[in-house]
Design a binder for these strands. Structure first.
Lengths: 114, 114
DNA sequence: TGCACATATGAACGTCTATTCATCATTTCG
DNA sequence: CGAAATGATGAATAGACGTTCATATGTGCA
């Protein structure tokens, strides 16, 4: 997902498609996008996230489990609380680029491809 | 989704999250990833795609409708056939980056974030 | 030590969705 | 002109899934 992803790939194989879909699934519901977007700005507890995205803490916790299992977020237990962060810079970039894509689509900046 | 998506955004608002999720949905199932992946390499007819991704033509056609409505692909009618292409370079980049992300995850290249 | 707090997890349920099967519309060709 | 080819669309259905409610677990504190 960096600027050197410019060599047109061979058509995607089934396994890759599955993996891509699995990960993109994380960004396919507004609730998870919101969660990842907030974690993009700083590490947060479940409670912080629930308040920030205005969701039930249980719903947030469920979604965080999905994200954890996908390897997109990590939790650091601190006493009663768990501090969640994005797993790494790649995830951060994934979120940024998803948002950026929407922004550029809005601006109508496009040229024909394929 | 280019390399200047480096300014950490404010936390995402609900509308943006909805739009992001809507678009990412296109990449959230293997069948659509495969279709987009093939269209990444060249324009193709529905029949070509069906054979390439080993899906029923009707299933492909349905998915193409989803992708059309999301503005990710365009169809050019030529007699009996319709030639499908990715809508623009942004979509191509979206596909590339989704694949690239998986590739880099596989390689275990990551650093902590957030 | 018992209660409060934070979070994880499971079950239930309503909603969503991808594929299949059927049907239709348009174009091409023998 | 009728049949074949191509692709769009609708309905049905099985499976997936996000949220709610309930319960469990671990930590902190008076």
């Amino acid at each position: 997902m960096s600027h050197d992803a410019t060599n047109a790939p061979a058509a995607i194989d089934g396994d890759t498609a599955r993996l891509v879909a699995e990960t993109m699934q994380a960004l396919a519901t507004p609730s998870r996008v919101l969660i990842l977007g907030h974690l993009r700005t700083s590490p947060l507890t479940v409670g912080d996230l629930a308040r920030a995205v205005e969701m039930d803490p249980s719903a947030v916790s469920h979604q965080l489990r999905v994200l954890r299992h996908l390897g997109l977020v990590v939790a650091e237990r601190t006493g009663r609380t768990a501090i969640y962060s994005l797993h790494d810079e790649h995830v951060a970039e994934l979120v940024d680029q998803a948002v950026h894509h929407i922004t550029h689509r809005r601006l109508g900046l496009g040229s024909h491809a394929s």
